[in-house]
Simulated scan of single mutants.
Amino acid sequence: MAIGDKQLVGWRERVGLPDLFDGLIPAKIDTGAKTSSLHATGIERYLAGRRKMVRFLLDVGGGASEPVVCELPHADHRIITSSNGQSEERLIIKTRIAIGSHVFRAEFSLTDRSDMKFPILVGRTALRRGFLVDSSRSYLQSGDAERRRILR
Score class of each variant (00 low, 15 high):
Ile150Tyr: 10
Pro67Tyr: 05
Glu66Ser: 12
His39Cys: 07
Val69Gly: 03
Thr31Asp: 05
Ala106Arg: 09
Gln141Asn: 13
Ser136Phe: 09
His102Ile: 06
Leu24Gly: 14
Gln7Tyr: 13
Tyr139Phe: 15
Ile93Tyr: 03
Gly85Thr: 03
Ala48Pro: 07
Ser36Pro: 04
Gly143Met: 10
Leu38Ile: 05
Arg148Val: 08
Ser37Glu: 04
Lys6Thr: 07
Gly62Met: 09
Arg129Asp: 00
Ala48His: 12
Leu72Asp: 05
Asp134Gly: 10
Gly4Ile: 01
Thr81Gln: 15
Asp22Asn: 13
Leu58Glu: 12
Leu72Lys: 10
Phe131Ile: 04
Ala75Ile: 10
Gly42Phe: 03
Glu44Gln: 15
Glu89Ser: 11
Gln7Met: 13
Arg45Thr: 15
Lys34Gly: 03
Ala98Leu: 08
Pro26Tyr: 09
Ile120Ser: 00
Ile80Arg: 06
Arg149Cys: 04
Arg124Lys: 12
Leu91Met: 07
Arg50Thr: 15
Phe131Ala: 05
Ile92Ser: 05
Leu17Phe: 12
Asp76Asn: 14
Met53Trp: 00
Tyr46Val: 06
Ala126Arg: 07
Glu13Lys: 13
Phe118Ala: 00
Asp144Ala: 12
Arg12Thr: 13
Asp144Val: 12
Leu57Gly: 13
Ser135Phe: 08
Glu146Arg: 06
Lys6Asp: 06
Lys117Pro: 13
Asp115Tyr: 07
Ser87Arg: 15
